[in-house]
Amino acid sequence: MHIRVYNTTNAFTSLGATFDERVLLGRGPTSSTIHGELRHRVGSLLPQQGNDASYAQLYIYDPASALEVRNCRNQQLRRDVLQTIQDTLLQVNPFVEKFR
């Protein structure tokens, strides 16, 4: 039901693009067209002072702390599902190991 939110919650980067909003006019299913290039924004490995960690920064944290941050930011998501996704990524995703 919230698959995009679960995906974004566990992403290493954020999406950067310029969207062509002309295609959003009219009726029918929502779609988007990217104008130019698609970018992944990585940012700093440390959060700015006063901000919580996000994206790749959370993979440096203790997994319990990272889960807490993800859960607090996305209270509509099930904590047990977030835990399962995080545990799976920690076990099988080679990038997690590189960030840790």
Rank of each mutant, 00 (worst) to 15 (best):
63 P>S: 11
47 P>S: 01
80 D>G: 04
49 Q>L: 10
14 S>G: 04
84 T>I: 01
88 T>L: 08
29 P>D: 09
93 N>W: 03
74 N>C: 13
57 Q>H: 02
73 R>H: 11
69 V>P: 05
53 A>D: 09
23 V>E: 02
45 L>G: 11
54 S>G: 00
41 R>K: 10
30 T>K: 05
2 H>G: 00
13 T>N: 10
46 L>P: 02
14 S>V: 01
85 I>A: 08
61 Y>R: 12
22 R>M: 08
2 H>Q: 06
77 L>Y: 02
78 R>N: 14
47 P>L: 01
16 G>R: 05
52 D>H: 11
66 A>S: 15
37 E>I: 01
3 I>K: 03
56 A>E: 09
50 G>D: 07
30 T>G: 09
15 L>A: 03
38 L>M: 04
4 R>P: 08
54 S>R: 09
82 L>I: 07
4 R>W: 03
16 G>C: 02
30 T>M: 08
52 D>G: 03
72 C>P: 00
44 S>N: 10
72 C>T: 13
93 N>Q: 02
7 N>W: 05
40 H>N: 09
97 E>K: 15
24 L>N: 12
22 R>T: 15
44 S>I: 00
61 Y>K: 12
24 L>M: 15
23 V>P: 08
71 N>C: 13
97 E>S: 14
75 Q>P: 11
94 P>Q: 05
39 R>A: 02
77 L>C: 13
44 S>R: 10
19 F>I: 15
94 P>G: 12
30 T>E: 06
16 G>A: 04
83 Q>K: 09
89 L>A: 10
57 Q>A: 05
76 Q>H: 11
65 S>C: 12
41 R>L: 14
27 R>M: 07
12 F>Q: 01
66 A>D: 06
23 V>A: 04
55 Y>N: 07
84 T>R: 12
37 E>W: 05
84 T>K: 10
20 D>M: 04
27 R>A: 08
27 R>H: 08
11 A>W: 04
71 N>E: 06
49 Q>V: 07
64 A>N: 12
99 F>H: 05
100 R>D: 06
79 R>E: 10
36 G>F: 03
29 P>Q: 10
26 G>C: 06
40 H>Q: 12
74 N>F: 02
15 L>R: 03
40 H>F: 15
63 P>F: 08
66 A>G: 12
59 Y>G: 09
41 R>Q: 11
42 V>A: 08
61 Y>V: 04
97 E>T: 15
92 V>T: 11
